[in-house]
Simulated assay, not measured.
Amino acid sequence: MKMKEFLKENERYWADRAEGYCQVNIDELRSNKKLEWIDIIKSNAPVFAWDRRLKVLDIGCGSGFFSIILSCAGYDVTAVDYTEEMLNKAKQNAGDLKDKIKFRRMDAHNLEFDEGEFDLIVTRNLTWNLKDPEKAYKSWYKVLRKGGKMINFDANWYLHLFDEEKRREYESDRKNVELSGMEDHYTCTDIDSMEDLARQVPLSKIKRPSWDKVVLDKIGFKNIKIDQNIWTKTWNEEEKLNYGSTPMFMIIGEK
């Protein structure tokens, strides 16, 4: 499938999921977990000599969780997403912050910003979903200023489609969630459509974040750091039970 066709199909899927995804973000905003997220991002953000707000780019902002909490924390935030419906939800969730956050519809593979425009890039659960993640990383590197950082949170969300051991772990997660009586975050979505998309993107079948480190180093990122246990600080018990076989990692690169 060509990039243009893929983007259209991807957008349709996420537009359909916007309402449910939005509720997840609303729940996060109401919880104390947002404080842990802010602390993690702040502690890894770049430090410059000037006295001004850091310019932050939230790529694949979804319904606005990162954009909202970072704007509240005093950052100058720009939020981009390819799905118009997600951007509408993000603006709605932002409330009084709507006019402070700059929302743009944009393809993460081809950012339409000036070179060196941002001090910090944040993104969550996006790179696995890209048709050409290496191209996207190059675009992100370009819009970072020298000394700026990218903080990416992601996981091997659909490796179970290609790896038998991961498939068994995934099925075990589903059984454990059922026995617990908690909501299953997979079965409450259109699994068939999501798995169809997942099979079309390269990172579904690649064990990460080792792949990311190699690519970021090749592009020119330096001081690359990986934390494969970041999920222990950011997930609640329901998330840990749902995603036990796909623990979230954090990877940071500096320009």
Results as ranks from 00 to 15, higher is better:
249 F>L: 04
235 W>G: 04
237 E>S: 15
230 I>Y: 06
121 I>G: 00
189 T>N: 11
190 D>N: 14
71 S>R: 07
101 I>K: 04
192 D>M: 11
18 A>K: 04
17 R>T: 12
155 A>E: 07
245 S>M: 02
248 M>K: 09
123 T>C: 14
193 S>E: 11
20 G>A: 07
254 E>T: 12
59 I>V: 15
31 S>F: 08
205 K>L: 01
223 N>P: 07
121 I>F: 04
1 M>T: 13
183 E>P: 01
251 I>L: 13
236 N>Y: 06
87 L>Y: 08
17 R>S: 15
33 K>I: 10
121 I>C: 01
79 A>M: 07
175 K>T: 06
97 L>H: 03
45 A>K: 01
190 D>L: 01
200 Q>F: 02
147 G>W: 03
65 F>G: 05
207 K>G: 00
58 D>I: 08
77 V>Q: 07
240 K>E: 07
181 G>N: 03
12 R>L: 14
207 K>T: 13
193 S>K: 13
220 G>L: 00
90 A>F: 01
209 P>R: 09
204 S>C: 06
242 N>G: 04
205 K>Y: 07
182 M>Q: 12
235 W>E: 10
216 L>F: 10
150 M>G: 07
144 L>K: 03
211 W>P: 02
237 E>D: 15
137 Y>M: 15
206 I>E: 11
135 K>F: 03
30 R>Q: 14
107 D>V: 03
200 Q>S: 15
124 R>T: 07
48 F>Q: 00
165 E>N: 10
221 F>C: 02
131 K>Y: 15
41 I>S: 02
8 K>Y: 11
76 D>C: 09
127 T>C: 09
225 K>L: 13
8 K>F: 10
228 Q>K: 14
70 L>Q: 04
177 V>A: 06
90 A>Q: 04
224 I>G: 10
66 F>H: 14
108 A>W: 05
242 N>V: 04
11 E>L: 00
105 R>G: 07
84 E>K: 13
24 V>K: 12
142 K>Y: 03
63 S>N: 11
186 Y>K: 08
226 I>E: 13
114 D>Q: 15
22 C>A: 15
157 W>D: 00
25 N>K: 00
157 W>S: 00
206 I>R: 10
7 L>Q: 13
248 M>Q: 14
230 I>A: 08
143 V>W: 04
237 E>F: 08
16 D>L: 12
218 K>I: 03
156 N>E: 11
56 V>D: 08
195 E>Y: 08
